[in-house]
Design a protein around this nucleic acid. Structure first.
Lengths: 97, 97
DNA sequence: TCAATGATTAGATGATTATCTAAATATCTA
DNA sequence: TAGATATTTAGATAATCATCTAATCATTGA
């Protein structure tokens, strides 16, 4: 659940599209599935990776599982990139990946 | 050279550390190599991926090749994440059942 | 309780990846 | 020009990854 997992999770186009779809609000796995040409098993695999990376949360309601975007990790990544852009600036600030 | 390459490039810890080292300014491949426990061939492989993704530029000077950080692609990624964080503007239809 | 539905897990497979050693290319200097 | 240095390229290998089918778990409703 460190940086490594976050970046790995973001490095797949299907997973990035999942996050993009969740921008509009929570969606059940089945609803997400309609947007892709993969099996439910594959989607479940991707959701598992995103969940493990802390990029999404899930909440079970009856027989549905609703997924929501969690932006906490995104903030960490954002900061990592911003730090990277602060080039040659004393450099006492180091990362943890 | 699209988004895919950028994220893939960032999904490896060695490559992220290379970018971090380049924050302080240009470094030759050999100088970068001192910071890792991999062979020059492996480092070259990583540099090739970063270059292909547009995250670094290279400039040959004599028998050295100096690598520099290129933040253009980082800006694109930054914007992608910021867009992702612009969730459901104004409205709040969290409870959908 | 049984069948249907939504979703995950298990296990297998082909593709991609990170790494290595060895060889090649390019440049500098004696 | 020969040898040393800096780096990349070629080819191989083991690990990881995305995907699939089939099986399983959980929930709903008749």
């Amino acid at each position: 659940m460190g940086f490594q997992d976050s970046f790995k999770a973001l490095s797949d186009p299907t997973r990035r599209e999942i996050l993009n779809l969740l921008r509009a609000g929570p969606l059940a796995a089945g609803e997400l599935l309609e947007h892709f040409s993969i099996t439910g098993a594959s989607l479940s695999h991707h959701l598992s990776i995103l969940r493990h990376a802390g990029l999404i949360d899930d909440e079970k309601k009856g027989k549905y599982i609703y997924y929501t975007l969690n932006t906490t990790v995104l903030d960490d990544i954002l900061n990592w990139i911003l730090t990277l852009k602060e080039m040659e600036k004393g450099g006492s600030d180091h990362e943890k990946s």
